[in-house]
Computed example of a mutant assay.
Amino acid sequence: MPGLITFGLTSLPALIVGLSATGETRDGRDGGHGSAMAGIVISGLQVAGWVLFWGLYMAGSAWTSCWS
């Protein structure tokens, strides 16, 4: 899970590369379609997790500053 160590900086490029690879392997002539789909799912979950984390962090910061 390099996305946890790099704070999600590798997740977005991995999602883009996975989407590109899915388009290239869709016709069945090249292998790796399953790996591309797995990359999309894993990196998509990491991107969603980091967006959720930072959204909650910002909301918590705003909530805390309102009551201080």
Rank of each mutant, 00 (worst) to 15 (best):
S11I: 04
G28M: 10
R26A: 08
T22F: 13
Y57C: 09
G23I: 12
V47T: 03
W50D: 01
L56R: 04
A48C: 03
V47H: 05
Q46M: 07
S11M: 07
P13L: 01
T6L: 06
L9R: 11
A62V: 14
A62Y: 15
V47K: 05
D30N: 03
S65F: 08
L12A: 13
T6W: 06
P13Q: 05
I40E: 02
I42G: 03
G49Y: 11
P2K: 09
W63H: 15
W54H: 08
G44I: 08
L15W: 15
A36C: 06
D30C: 00
G23H: 04
G32M: 07
A62L: 15
E24V: 15
V41C: 07
G49W: 13
G3I: 03
M37C: 07
G32W: 12
R29K: 12
T25Q: 06
G49L: 04
A59T: 13
G39R: 07
R29E: 14
S61Q: 10
P13R: 05
M1D: 15
Q46A: 11
S43D: 09
G39A: 05
I42T: 07
G18Q: 01
F7S: 07
T64K: 11
A36T: 03
T6C: 00
G3C: 07
V41G: 04
A36E: 14
W63Y: 13
G60E: 06
G8S: 07
I5C: 03
M1H: 05
C66H: 14
T25S: 05
I42R: 06
W54M: 13
D27W: 09
W67A: 14
G34D: 12
G49R: 03
G49N: 02
E24P: 01
A36G: 01
G34K: 04
L45S: 07
L4M: 09
G39Y: 03
T6P: 00
F53G: 00
V17D: 01
T64C: 01
S20D: 13
A21G: 00
V41T: 10
S20P: 00
W67S: 13
D27Y: 14
W54S: 07
L9M: 06
A48I: 07
G32N: 10
L15G: 00
P2I: 14
G55P: 01
